[in-house]
Design a protein around this nucleic acid. Sequence first.
DNA 1: GTGTAATCGAGACGGTACGTCGAGTCTTGTG
DNA 2: CACAAGACTCGACGTACCGTCTCGATTACAC
Lengths: 209, 209, 209, 209
Amino acid sequence: MTPGSTEGMEAATAERRRGRPRSDRARAAILAAGQALFLERGLDGVTVDEIADRAGASKATIYRWWPSKEHLAVDALYDDWLSHAGPENDEVPLEQELEGYLVPWVRVLRRRPYGRVVAGLVARAQLDPAFAEHYRTWFVRRRRDHVGRILRRRIADGDLPATTDVPLALDLIFGPIYHRLLHGHAPVNEPYVRAIVRTVVRGLLRPNG
Amino acid sequence: MTPGSTEGMEAATAERRRGRPRSDRARAAILAAGQALFLERGLDGVTVDEIADRAGASKATIYRWWPSKEHLAVDALYDDWLSHAGPENDEVPLEQELEGYLVPWVRVLRRRPYGRVVAGLVARAQLDPAFAEHYRTWFVRRRRDHVGRILRRRIADGDLPATTDVPLALDLIFGPIYHRLLHGHAPVNEPYVRAIVRTVVRGLLRPNG
Amino acid sequence: MTPGSTEGMEAATAERRRGRPRSDRARAAILAAGQALFLERGLDGVTVDEIADRAGASKATIYRWWPSKEHLAVDALYDDWLSHAGPENDEVPLEQELEGYLVPWVRVLRRRPYGRVVAGLVARAQLDPAFAEHYRTWFVRRRRDHVGRILRRRIADGDLPATTDVPLALDLIFGPIYHRLLHGHAPVNEPYVRAIVRTVVRGLLRPNG
Amino acid sequence: MTPGSTEGMEAATAERRRGRPRSDRARAAILAAGQALFLERGLDGVTVDEIADRAGASKATIYRWWPSKEHLAVDALYDDWLSHAGPENDEVPLEQELEGYLVPWVRVLRRRPYGRVVAGLVARAQLDPAFAEHYRTWFVRRRRDHVGRILRRRIADGDLPATTDVPLALDLIFGPIYHRLLHGHAPVNEPYVRAIVRTVVRGLLRPNG
DNA sequence: GTGTAATCGAGACGGTACGTCGAGTCTTGTG
DNA sequence: CACAAGACTCGACGTACCGTCTCGATTACAC
């Protein structure tokens, strides 16, 4: 499942659509061109014509499948942005489990200049509530939900106080990462993520300090 | 001193500049129009022509004094964005001093839709390193420096461990605020700020917890 | 064939051009709007935006097909400016043949305020040698060449001396017409043209008076 | 007397104007700068700022004394444009007298690229009837009147028929010169002027040829 | 095989905003 | 007063990009 997928729209029957089927070559080429160009120059630094040229596709094809440049960007970057994994793991301390999830992400952030694109997406989201919802769903909520599940499990396990404010904890973890990503005043690297996680977890442990 | 000020360039002598002096009426009207329009519709939702019209000025005058729309936005919003104060105060607990500084700011953020503009500024900063520096200096660094001074004084006073990582602490405080401001997934209100401050300070107190 | 035509560039094969074909509606509307506005207010009195608005086209479309406002003016006015005809006719006296060609033109000049536009074109031609060539080719040379052919035939027929200086004769015929057209000190009407033709032909007849 | 002179406005009394007197240095420098720049690049190719810079004057001073750039151009070029002379002379044939007046002028035209400026003036005259009158008076009428006086004297002397149409004759003489000056299809040189004069005079001699 | 229908690349289109430039006016302090 | 300096308003310029639209050409399934 990806942000731009249109599967599931027709009935689940075997009924094939008539007419020429969508070209997978074009779709893949557009996403690849988008990924490369958006990371290189940011959302506003790239024109749709450029993407079409690089992909050997036409602008009409792009707009047939993605309603706007920013939707395309979300789709083009989603896989890489969310690439990660590590199974949930109760055996290790909470800090370690959180780092296990966040560190692969920040490795991606360091490897590629995502700040350029994310800043553009955030700016568009301000002017277009529908896109804001789309962007949050695919780019932000996925990670927050994952970490939220971890935290709630740890609460159930008694590793965190029952009174822990999970949304606040998520903002305390993700906020500093986005802060450096978007403002660029300092690098988003592994030591930074470890420090965030340790300080926040420590702060959450004693609710009535 | 404001972001767009050009004072202090000539010698401090009483030597007056020749020619027609810059119109304070035009400058003030442009900044007022910019402030109103940028907050209303965001950086990208406003055209320079509109600002000129509303200010009764001409586009040429705007471009004479501000190199771009985003520089104008920084200048137009700076005063309001930084309006705050509260003298530094050792007598109260650290949490209270931090809240005393941050809460007035957050009240501004709630009163006006700053997210729209800040998102636009952040996006532009990605594509223009010179503007990025300008924006960070006037919009971000000012507040970080203020809080940084507080933290360092508290370290000297023994209220915080000598090993406290001040830049990290600043990111932990400001990051979550920017996170909600830009992503809009939850409100930036006083309880939120208090919760951030308490959790972070608690987390900082026992570095080797 | 018109000044702005691009036909004949590709091979004469039936090979159709790819992509959306140029809109004849837009082309015709732009030329019509240009003709009306240029005659009404002269080259400098009309903005390209106005032409675009009146034509229901966009400025980009105008600039896609005409490199400048003055090129558009040449194209928009060419047909009307050159509308004329009358087959060449040896049976009548030379004066009468010349009048037969020039009088219809002069009627156009009286019917519409061409002076405004031609003055603008002449002014632009001074600053842009490439446009000067374009303008002369389509607006001036056409008529001169036609009259030149008449004169050379009459020389061959013995109606004019073999030593007749044809370029000089053309300047003597067209010069006075342009003079009044551009300076506006007196009307360009039929009696004027007849008087020019008679005086010049008489002057040419006795080369060594 | 020059086109921009303002003498004669105050009473002929010896009463001197109060305040700082007009600077002759500035006036001369502005006219000199205007003459050089207008001839070099034409009316539209020169900005008033440029003239002010080159003259070491200010734009305000220019606009205090000349209502527009084109009025300045008329004034700056008038002396050179009309420089000529030759006393009227009944002793020689008409052709020779006319050449005696016109040849010095065309020498000026060949020495300097007047076409550029005159074309600009003619274009402006189309859009501004008041300036059109001004331009015709100083740039066109002067010469026409001079030649007109010659022709009328020659009619009185019997060298030309009593029925001679003087305005037509003037258009036949000046028209071809302006034609080449403005259209630039051929040079305006002495042989050309001589050929014009001879052909036209010959054509005028036998009105009912 | 022969429609029928949706796709594709190409590229022109209307629209909107950009940042620049020049004309002519206005506002200072200085001579 | 006039003058140099230079900021001001106004309005047009030509460019760039967006997202839409029309073409001819292609490619499947349905008959």
